[in-house]
Design a binder for these strands. Structure first.
Length: 489
RNA sequence: GGCGCGGUACCCAAGUGGUAAGGGAGCGGUCUGCAAAACCGCGAUGCGUGGGUUCGACUCCCACCCGCGCCUCCA
């Protein structure tokens, strides 16, 4: 089976054929660290983390580059008033980028192969801008002592091929303030002459700083080559950002920039896009106060990456229950494993291998189809259901339990959903097998006391103990193998 | 105005030219001292509306209604 990817360029699903398999080069537009990371960002980076993980699972070697826009109007605005503006900008970037990385790590997003920063590639950008001027795709306009440099959109034939718009169509509804100096309102800045109190770098056009789009064209080519396999980002970047990236890069090199363009859908609040400007965003930091990051991850992946997701507490609460079901399965298996006896089990590994394989195949089929995580998650739930059902039918041999557990964990791992840590934390005692801390001892003493009461048919007392533990967040389950307990946070 | 996306049960959400995955909630049952969990069963005669193509459409085509996004920074 081959992976199929929906390519924004062709507006179709295409067979994924990287240039030099098994190598895959992938670039995803990163953040501008000037504020806390919100759920919308989370969705984008979880999406591409899954793309990366699944490609790796499919035996590709992924070189994943994600830039950091560390020079930008918003950062500068936030730094205004500082004595050393460049220094202040760097501090802001550090603060929010650290926070970004922290939050991503909680979401179990693997760090990219590299996080290149715009300010560390000014020279490379200057070179490309010069090339564009030399080739007649760009022009400079004097501003005081320095110059702005603009890309002349009309010179690049193919402009609009990603966002499917024609220059004529855009002019009709453009709400942009018209800058009379530019040859066309669509021309965009490659280099901005420094204004008073702005961080700046030397260039052939005097002191200034790069425009937003150029960094991505430059850094992606630098780390991945002039043509690379996958370019990703949020839907909102299609125009103008990605369109402009293509124009700059392809004008400069004459080569195809990126083969596959992938764009994730938005997170909405009451059907409206979650965004900074609307002020309706929820930061991941805040969400994590109430919900486990893995719940958030599951919530995001239960919808196909290209569809919008409407965010609400209720939806997260539902995802929480679903996640609990996954975790509980691992606990149940661990519990049984901890109790395994020497008796002859009725269910052997041969009985279930084929079935497990079926769910595995369904998972792969779904993921191959443009990373259909919703379908893939369904396959995992079906696999769990099958395992529970099997375990209900009789005693299973140890290998059987282990392969069940491994099968589920492996698939969850491809989606970056962690179960084991949570399962272990909750299942602190495992019937006394793992943890012998005083707290656990105390809980188990009470369980033993309850057990004795139950034997004596003193159910009143037994229920009291159960209620008391429940109030402490300890949930008891009486099974044929004894009482199982877990600590739910 | 241009371009794009979507409308599937109580909620969320996959999917497909041949008769609706999965999750959450609910109801009934098995198990249990009672629970919990798990298991079994129930739950859209129908996939925005109206036409059309077809042996057959929710899936293809047309029109319409509704919601959203991009065209300005935005994941």
């Amino acid at each position: 089976m081959t992976v199929r990817i929906y390519n924004t360029l062709s507006q179709k699903k295409e067979d994924f054929e990287p240039q030099t398999p098994p190598q895959v080069s992938m670039y995803v537009c990163g953040v501008t660290p000037y504020d806390e990371t919100h759920l919308g960002h989370g969705r984008a980076y979880v999406t591409f983390d899954v793309v990366r993980r699944y490609l790796e699972y499919s035996d590709y070697k992924v070189n994943y580059i994600q830039n950091v826009t560390d020079v930008d109007d918003k950062i500068i605005a936030k730094a205004q008033g500082a004595k050393d503006i460049k220094q202040k900008c760097a501090e802001i970037v550090k603060q929010y980028f650290d926070s970004y990385q922290d939050v991503m790590s909680k979401l179990n997003v693997k760090p990219p192969s590299n996080y290149p920063k715009a300010t560390e590639h000014i020279d490379d950008m200057v070179k490309i801008i010069q090339t564009l001027i030399d080739k007649g795709f760009a022009y400079a306009i004097k501003v005081g002592d320095a110059s702005d440099v603009y890309f002349e959109v009309a010179k690049f034939n193919g402009y609009g091929k990603l966002s499917k718009r024609k220059l004529e169509d855009m002019e009709a509804g453009a709400r942009v303030e018209i800058d009379k100096r530019k040859k066309s309102p669509h021309d965009f800045a490659l280099w901005k002459a420094a204004k008073e109190g702005e961080p700046s770098w030397d260039s052939p056009w005097g002191k200034g700083r790069p425009g937003w789009h150029i960094e991505c064209s430059v850094m992606s080519s630098k780390y991945l080559g002039q043509t690379f396999d996958i370019h990703g980002g949020g839907r909102d970047l299609i125009f103008p950002h990605h369109e402009n990236e293509i124009a700059q890069a392809e004008a400069a090199t004459g080569k195809l920039f990126a083969k596959y363009w992938m764009h994730n859908g938005f997170v909405n609040i009451n059907k409206q896009k979650m965004s900074k400007s609307l002020g309706n965003f929820f930061t991941l930091k805040d969400i994590f106060e109430k919900f486990d990051p893995m719940v958030v991850r599951l919530f995001l992946l239960q919808t196909h990456y290209r569809s919008p997701i409407d965010f609400s507490d209720q939806q997260l609460t539902e995802a929480s229950s679903a996640y609990g079901r996954l975790v509980k399965f691992i606990q149940d298996v661990d519990f049984i494993l901890g109790k395994t006896t020497e008796t002859a089990p009725q269910i052997e590994i041969e009985d279930i291998q084929e079935d497990l394989l079926e769910y595995n195949e369904k998972f792969t089929k779904e993921m191959d189809d443009d990373f259909n995580t919703a379908g893939a998650i369904a396959a995992i739930f079906e696999m769990i259901h099958f395992c529970h059902k099997t375990l209900d039918e009789g005693e299973a041999e140890k290998e059987c339990l282990e392969i069940m557990k491994k099968s589920v964990l492996d698939l969850c791992e491809v989606l970056g959903i962690k179960l084991e840590t949570k399962a272990k934390i909750e299942l602190g005692g495992m019937g006394g097998a793992i943890d012998d801390s005083p707290e656990v001892k105390k809980i188990e003493d009470q369980i033993a006391e309850r057990e004795a009461a139950r034997k004596n048919k003193d159910f009143n007392k037994a229920d009291k103990i159960r209620d008391k533990l429940k109030a402490q967040g300890i949930i008891l389950e009486d099974t044929s193998l004894g009482t199982k307990w877990s600590a739910v946070k």
